[in-house]
Amino acid sequence: MANDKSSMQLISRGILSENPIFKLALSMCPAVGISTTVMNGFMLGVAVLFVQVFSSITISLFKNLIHPRIRIPTYTLTIATWVTVIDLVLAAYMPEAYAKMGIFVKLIVAFAIITMRLEMFACKESVKDSFWDGLGMGLGFMVGMMAIGFVRELLGSGAILGYDVLGFKPLLFFILPSAGFFVVGLMMAFFNWIEIYYKRSRGLK
């Protein structure tokens, strides 16, 4: 199965039509647990972006050497290696960033979205296309996390990016993990509604 999409199409697919959070509904645990603020969402998004791109490239490079029966363990191993490498490098050379991102980086090993992209895309396609696909998916995840974080931070703590904008805390409940499900569900419905509306208005089915 050859890929017939251009690099731009691959990126926009990751962000819009196949957004990991709102369309594919993958990696919900971190989306719900971490996205309490815009900044947290951004940090996790950046970390996922790097791991996704590096893992996609690695698997794409070695795709002919991986035995089909053990591909899932190999993917996990690859992801774990990259997560460890990024964790160590950040801790050593960027202590400031590591202090904020440290806990997020370690979580990534268990992310379904990365394994899924390796299985669906990187193990079949060329290195170049895998890079763009990984970049698109990573960006899509980051955008999704920041969107959820925006809603939860605004409603939960009345702030955006740590700056107090409302001056009061409307609904403390939105900080709690359980509220994340409500936010994700409602936003998913919202984006689907926009998409349907858009298609109908253009006379598409």
């Binding site: 191993l77 690859t78 774990a80 290696t81 460890t84 490498v85 160590l88 490098v89 801790a91 050593a92 050379y93």
Partner: peptide
């Protein structure tokens, strides 16, 4: 994988 992680650890542990 272990080699990559090990090498990375050796190079970064002092700085950490």
């Amino acid at each position: 994988a272990a080699t990559v992680m090990g090498l990375c650890f050796i190079f970064t542990s002092n700085a950490k």
